[in-house]
Write a protein that binds this DNA or RNA. Sequence first.
DNA 1: CGAAGCTTTGATTTATTTCAAGTACAGTGG
DNA 2: CCACTGTACTTGAAATAAATCAAAGCTTCG
Lengths: 240, 240
Amino acid sequence: MQLPCEDCPIRYRAVCATCETPELTELEGSKYYRRYEAGQTVVLSGERMDFVASVVSGIASLTQTLEDGRTQMVGLLLPSDFLWRPGRDSSPYDVTAVSDLLLCCFRRRPFEGLLRSSPRIAARLLDMTLDDLDAARDWLLLLGRKSAREKIASFLTILARRDAMLRQAQTPGLVVLDLPLTREAMADYLGLTLETVSRQISALRREGVIALDGKRRVIVPDFNRLVAESGDDSDGGLPS
Amino acid sequence: MQLPCEDCPIRYRAVCATCETPELTELEGSKYYRRYEAGQTVVLSGERMDFVASVVSGIASLTQTLEDGRTQMVGLLLPSDFLWRPGRDSSPYDVTAVSDLLLCCFRRRPFEGLLRSSPRIAARLLDMTLDDLDAARDWLLLLGRKSAREKIASFLTILARRDAMLRQAQTPGLVVLDLPLTREAMADYLGLTLETVSRQISALRREGVIALDGKRRVIVPDFNRLVAESGDDSDGGLPS
DNA sequence: CGAAGCTTTGATTTATTTCAAGTACAGTGG
DNA sequence: CCACTGTACTTGAAATAAATCAAAGCTTCG
């Protein structure tokens, strides 16, 4: 049930990445897992949240909703991402398990103490937060200025790069991607309607930029072609 | 020329907010000021950046630009905001002085050392970064799901609240705001064109939600009315 | 006064949304 | 094994919000 930290798939990516043995032992002693099925709510906006957690496997979303029901995803948590803000006790967003989800959790108070006593963990959390902020700023550009087509292409490149990063691989020319999100969740991520998402995916398929195997598996024959469709500066990514 | 830290207008809001006398003395010894005129570039994207800084007065923007010239603002730095990411030596964004700007600067290397030796400063920086991340996430909602009209109303409420925050006041019913941005810069912030910004401001004026005194001074007779136009949950702000 | 920069307003076009069917597919139970 | 249901997805036609193209108004500054 309880995976030893040494064998954890996110050991060198998560908030505990830079921990040495003594800290790791302390974490290991107090950690516990939570599992959620796809679609389940982890916490609702405004609800008390008395644990912090790393995503071990699966995907979770953070969403905000306007009074009239319009919703925007504001965070997509992939394995190794960290869930929660120290020093705050209720969630400002809805957190939902997008796929089956495994969280490695710690009670909030003890973790906050550890954060004070261990500069290494604090530094790692700062670093991860700064990465999140950079990602959010790229996302602002996407939402504010990109066309629907560019949004879809950008989203696919983001997924492909995140995936390559986790597997410590380079993004090759040919990429096979399993979309973790429904068309509706993609629409919430991209600030579009699900119909527009569907249409743009169809258009990219018609033009040979991508191919589909079923509804959820995307084959990208030429990753650079996809990047070119994303509207980003060509030099943003890895060579070849 | 050199303002003593005790008299600094952002003493209790900036990254140094929680510093005690010894740390403050160390900071005070190595700080230096930089001034920029409205419109001047602070750093360009990709350029080496060997200092970190707090905004003392004035406003700076962070912007990203696509190859074809479309630009999106991704950060608006007001007094007390902190400029730069420790551990990275080139800026990922263009930083521009929107108004006349005064920065309180520290050389990057020594500051990074201080960050390692002073948990108080590190904790403060984490806290500020988390605030930035929350603000960025609200911004995602604005860009992804709000109408042009709601975007303008939201922007005005954000400015009013930030202003009240700095002055430690409550946002009263009647608010007078000086817009720090041109219509074009507002458009870059909101993911609109400058014409749409102008039209929506005119529409809000026609309907009495706001009044204008010149092009840049906005009078809000009823702050709650403005908030209602912003599309946000009504309970987000301060009472009355 | 004239030029430049910022802003407003109008007319038109267009990308995306909205409304509306319809298809594909997996799971369930007869 | 096959109809049946529900969910996810696709596609079409019409409506619409915002962009684009174009012109003119207001300030400020030399």
